[in-house]
Design a binder for these strands. Structure first.
Lengths: 191, 191
DNA sequence: AAACTGACTAAAATACTAATTTGGTCATTT
DNA sequence: AAATGACCAAATTAGTATTTTAGTCAGTTT
């Protein structure tokens, strides 16, 4: 159709600007100009800047879900699946411009809106993992446990190993992390 | 002896002030006044404010070491010991005025000196745990593993469960945390 | 008339400056 | 010889002027 989809233009422009400059440094004038749209038009689709941002975050979450689902393998073991998911999520965080910028903004400036958004992203990742874990419990692959706490612990442990560990030590390889994951969480430390 | 131990007075005054106001908000004039000492005197014992602070942190680390050692039990299992240590460290963090203030300052203001100091505290806790874990490996209680990574993972998991989990959920009881610790780290998830 | 626009405004952020505070020194006192 | 506190340069803070920005709405375009 000849009619331009202005909402889409705005979302694309906003995504680009948030990726490039982060949340705070993105202005509505900038988005309007980037989208070749009057500023008022933005407000016919989104009540506030925050709402626009939230829609972008929803897309981000959807993108992550897609990535995660594309890597899940019904016939694989829980260890393999959990590992694939975590590695994929991590790769996503490191390659996706928007997440890079937002993690940076969260760390450096602590922008409230961004902190909340990233928490929402984390929560949604935990929700997928929860489902995966529930299936593994049902299949009898792992012991009965609270799937949400388990997902939470897995994610935290993973990011501890790939992010926090590097602060004082040489980084662990992908294989080392997988091994550690298996040892600590799956098999257990007891001799 | 009739001679006043000025260094001790200064350390006590500084500890009090850091506990009450944090690192940034503590001034050398304040410490001098609190210690009933001329400001110049402080500088005969400590080169800079940072050095004074570091000595206070050294005492803090020594205090924690004392707490931890008083709770260790050679004849107890690794699970019991690790749990005791972590619970003790946590109780310390929550009851000790200085740590409360510094954790707050670290979170709210990100004062560089404080961030580094708290990292040093964490590192030293990990060092004790490392020793405990090494002993358990030697005794054949747990599998062979890198004691430092293991200590690191344990500490991170513990604080995830007691601190991060509460952000979005009702807090876990001490018993629940001990159970989770046992399940995830010691016994492992595999059915 | 329905969709769109951008000049406009109040509020917030920033840049700038003046005034104060603070870490550290050192000539003087004890 | 040990201790002190007035002093100073540097940093921080408070106060203010200026600019920027989110959001509105009267007017324009289609």
């Amino acid at each position: 159709m000849a009619v331009i989809d202005r909402k889409k233009l705005i979302l694309e422009a906003a995504a680009k600007s948030f990726s490039l400059y982060g949340y705070k440094a993105t202005t509505m004038d900038q988005v309007a100009k980037l989208a070749n749209v009057g500023k008022g038009t933005i407000y016919t689709f989104f009540k506030t800047k925050e709402e626009l941002f939230e829609e972008i975050i929803n897309s981000l979450i959807a993108d992550i879900r897609f990535e995660v689902e594309s890597v899940l393998d019904e016939s694989a073991s829980i260890l393999e699946n959990v590992n694939s998911v975590l590695v994929r999520v991590h790769a996503f965080r490191e390659s996706h411009q928007l997440t890079i910028k937002l993690i940076q903004e969260e760390r450096d400036m602590g922008t409230q809106t961004v902190v909340e958004a990233m928490q929402r992203v984390e929560q949604s990742i935990i929700q997928y993992m929860k489902a995966i874990i529930q299936k593994a419990i049902d299949k009898g692959e792992i012991k009965s446990c609270d799937p949400e706490v388990t997902a939470f612990v897995m994610l935290k442990m993973y990011f501890s190993l790939v992010i926090d560990w590097q602060r004082n030590h040489p980084p662990l390889t992908k294989e080392e992390i997988a091994k550690l994951f298996e040892l600590y969480l799956l098999k257990g430390l007891l001799a």
